[in-house]
Each structure stands twice: as structure tokens, then as C-alpha cells.
Write a protein that binds this DNA or RNA. Structure first.
Lengths: 135, 135
DNA sequence: TTGGGTGCAAACTATTTGCATTCGA
DNA sequence: TCGAATGCAAATAGTTTGCACCCAA
């Protein structure tokens, strides 16, 4: 786990002023590679005796995502996860169990992508493979 | 555009009882290949003088999606689109303009997908390419 | 000081639930 | 007649906005 000092450094390096609330959110989210919803983060903060408001959690996650510290993963209607693994990767999502599993982008070959319309540039390529248990 | 009779037939063929509200939603959504949000559909129904409740629109879209008449596309946090193009395809999404454009899945080659964990079966493979305008 | 940055209460929006009603057998 | 299906008001859950406060320059 990152010490408090390390988290502050991480935030500063990302151009984010390391305030108390942001460090608390970062401690929970960036501790290891994982997928957490805003709600889960909020719950954990409360449990840790670090009550940060809902709005601040959302705003902070949005900021972290904009600066590349976490990645938003859209999985279900109105169910966003924040993924602290920022290496290029894609996702398996088991619709029966809710399990979300990363796999490296390097492993997959995606070829013959059409040219983006209106000569826009590609910002991200997200592959989500939805699974269902057999039987 | 489908006549009313055709829409009723379409719903029956999908195993859906063709009630008034469902036919009204279907007329709007299935008229042509397009991406619509629940809100847009609701607005158009009101405009057409066919006021179906919000809850019924959501439930009906959920039913249509379950029966394969439309496909849910997750684009933004809390922004679901219902795509009446059910042929296999993927999406370009321009984050600057909000434009959502289909491209055929047949065009793209995706290789070396890892085996699904726990021997679950693949339900869908969704590729979303986010774009940003140059400059 | 002071102007952008920050945190949060409150407002807002999207979606789901629970139940009275209706439908088809 | 009766259980399942249906439609919707109300409740819930998720997210954003607007503003008072704070802090670095």
C-alpha cells in the first residue's frame, strides 16, 4: 500500500493539489488494481472514519479520470466503475455474477478498424466482452 | 415506415404481446436504424400525442432489448442509447459532438481473445471507439 | 488581497420497484 | 375465474450544479 506521502506525490505528479479529501479517496482507489463504484468508495471512506461527501467523491473521481489516474469503465446502465489499472486493457463482464475481469490489450489483435469519420482522432478503444454462465 | 399491422406482427414474432403502448414505442424506435435515448423516445411520444409513462417506456425498452429488437449501447455514464440496428456492429462515439456512428462487425478482425474465465460463454462483444476532433 | 480552486448541500436526472388493473385461457 | 402480464405513480439511486469558503500567489 502507498504511504500517505507517496499518494501526495502521485497526485502532485498528476497535476492535482493533494488535499485531505483527495488523498483519502486516492488511498482507497489507488491502493491496488481494482474496480470500484463511487458507492463502494464512499462506503469504504465512511468505514475508515473519513467521511467525504458524495459530491466530492464524484468530482474527485472525475478529476482522477481526466488526469489518467483511473479509468472509467461503463458496464451497466448507470453503473460506472473506476479502474485503477491504467495499463491498456479490456474487460470481461459476467452478467450473472457481476464479476469484472481485466485482460491485457496486448494479447488481443484488433485489425481493419475503419477510419474515424471526419478525420477525428481516436481517443480510446474499449472492448467489453459480456459473459453468461453456462447452463 | 412500418404500418401498424407490421409492427404488431414484429412484436408477436418476438414473443411480445402487442399492446397499445408497446406499438407506440415500437413505431418510434424501430422506424429506421437509429440511436435514441429513453428521454428522446418519451419526448417524441408526447409530441405524437401518445403519452406513455416514463416507467413504461423504460420497461418496454428493456423488454425489446431482452428479445433482441433493439440493442443497448452504453456510451456515457448514465447515458444509455437504444440502437434499432441489431445486425452485428460496433460504435464510434465522438466525445466532442456526441455523434454515435455504427460500423459493421464484419469489417473488423478481433483475434486472440482470451478464453472466458470459469468457462462461461460469450454473450456479446462490444467495441466502442471514442473519438475527439482534431485541433 | 483576490481569483481560481475546492468541498459539499441541495437540486436534478435517470432508472427501478411495487402494486392496482387488465388480459387471455 | 384466476394467475400471469401489464402500465404507471411513486420511490430510489446516481450524478451534477451552484455557491460559500479557502488557499496560494
Amino acid at each position: 500500500m502507498d504511504s500517505e506521502g507517496d499518494v501526495a506525490k502521485l497526485l502532485r505528479e498528476a497535476g492535482i493539489r493533494p488535499t485531505l479529501q483527495r488523498m483519502q479517496v486516492a488511498e482507497v482507489v489507488l491502493r491496488k488494481d481494482q474496480h470500484l463504484s463511487a458507492e463502494q468508495i464512499l462506503t469504504e471512506l465512511d468505514y475508515n472514519g473519513a467521511p467525504v461527501s458524495k459530491a466530492t467523491v464524484y468530482n474527485t473521481l472525475g478529476l482522477f479520470a481526466a488526469r489518467g489516474l483511473v479509468r472509467e469503465v461503463l458496464i451497466d446502465a448507470a453503473r460506472v466503475f473506476y479502474d485503477s489499472n491504467t495499463r491498456p486493457h479490456h474487460h470481461f463482464y459476467n452478467t450473472d455474477t457481476g464479476a469484472l475481469v481485466d485482460f491485457p490489450a496486448s494479447q488481443v489483435v484488433i485489425e481493419n478498424l475503419p477510419a474515424p469519420p471526419n478525420s477525428a482522432r481516436i481517443e480510446s478503444v474499449d472492448l467489453v466482452i459480456r459473459l453468461r454462465n453456462k447452463g
